[in-house]
Amino acid sequence: MKVAVLGATGMVGRTFVRLLEGHPWFRVEKLVASERSAGRPYGEVVEDSPDEFRGLEIVSLGEFLEDPGVDLVFNALPASLSREVEEKLAEEIPVFTNARAHRYDEDVPILVPEVNPDHLGLVEVQRERRGWEGFIVTNPNCSTAVLTVSLAPLREFGIRRVHVATMQAVSGAGFSGLPALAVHDNVIPFISGEEWKIENESRKILGRIKGGKIEPAPFEVSAIATRVPVLHGHTEAVFVELARGSVEDVREAFESFDPLGRLGLPSYEKPLIYTEVPQPRLHRDRGRGLTVAVGRLEKSGRVFKYVVTGHNLVRGAAGGSLLNAELAVKLGYI
């Protein structure tokens, strides 16, 4: 299956390219970037490019849109460019996107394969309503992805309320997102728009399909987002009020959570591991960056608290989107 990566020279785009090296289902046909990179070999622009793609010539976005010539698109473009581009492509081609442009459309899923695979059912709603042959599937904000993987096993205990404080890596801000002097020796307790995304995307992901759209989960999600001087790996302190369950029950739910392992997806890794003290430097690369580490589990009354950490560029971005595409192929949507 021929695929293209849009925004291939950015931080998330480079992660897409690295994860697609040697992929058994998807063959990278086109790497798309800005006009200033177009016409140059990918390895000349991205020095640490996988050998497989070093000689592949970069295509400009305008040239690509004239003749995509692929079966599937991974999008790592900025949100400001993505809405019109994604809609144009989705008329004929499935689009799996890291951009937020369509996350909040009622007929577009925010997909985390282990958490809400049934939300792929919205693909048929999109096709019918919009007259598309393709479709758009989004993945969530990076901190939301890590959080919802940890919350999914807790649904059986009746989630009543979620509070979370994030400690987010600087790579989540992109190559030029933060001046070095701003974050060095510092914690920045504000990331524009981040808390709203966590609070609203989580409820959509953990909700259910009803009447051709997602009915958000009924519980409150409240977030404080901070930026910390860590390169990769978002860490989150989570406080969850549950209707029932013990520490032993919750830990067992974490450790046994593996809903898609039987499907044989090429990129699939066990989504959760339990470790006493999760830390980004030690655990962000577990499962090639797709495994989330959870620990520090304690209980006070009906409130359970724990710490979770996951790789923001893999589980929280490109790797999550790649899993979305693999699941869509496996379930027959492509």
Rank of each mutant, 00 (worst) to 15 (best):
K2L: 09
G320T: 02
R296A: 07
N75A: 09
A76P: 00
F239V: 12
A90D: 09
L89M: 02
R103I: 03
A76C: 04
L19E: 11
G316E: 10
S60I: 01
I188S: 03
P278T: 04
V292N: 10
H102V: 11
L61R: 04
N116H: 01
E269N: 14
F135M: 10
E220Q: 11
L19Q: 10
F16C: 07
A253Q: 07
V228P: 04
V85P: 03
D105A: 13
A8Q: 13
Q279P: 06
A99H: 00
A99W: 02
Y268L: 07
G264Q: 09
F26W: 02
G39D: 07
T309R: 08
L72K: 04
T226I: 06
S49E: 04
L56A: 14
L89F: 06
V146W: 02
L81M: 10
N139W: 00
A243E: 15
G320E: 03
P109E: 14
P94W: 03
S267G: 15
I205A: 06
L260Q: 10
H163Q: 15
G287D: 07
G55D: 15
L147E: 08
I58C: 04
I214G: 13
E47N: 08
V314W: 01
S171P: 06
L31S: 00
E66N: 13
W196D: 00
L31N: 06
E215W: 14
R160A: 12
L181G: 02
S60K: 02
I191W: 00
A318Y: 01
A76R: 02
P78W: 10
R160T: 04
R288C: 11
T291G: 14
S150T: 15
V187E: 05
R296T: 09
C142D: 02
L260E: 04
A217L: 05
V146R: 02
V28R: 03
V307G: 00
S34Q: 04
G245Y: 06
I205Y: 01
T275W: 09
V314T: 11
W132I: 01
E47F: 14
K305H: 12
S37Y: 09
D258I: 05
G134E: 01
V112A: 03
F175E: 15
E156D: 14
Y268K: 01
R302N: 13
E21P: 10
V146D: 04
P140F: 02
Y306C: 01
L81G: 08
L272R: 09
R227M: 12
E276L: 11
G43S: 08
A243G: 15
V28S: 00
E35W: 00
F64V: 08
E195P: 05
P153K: 03
A38L: 15
L331K: 15
E252L: 05
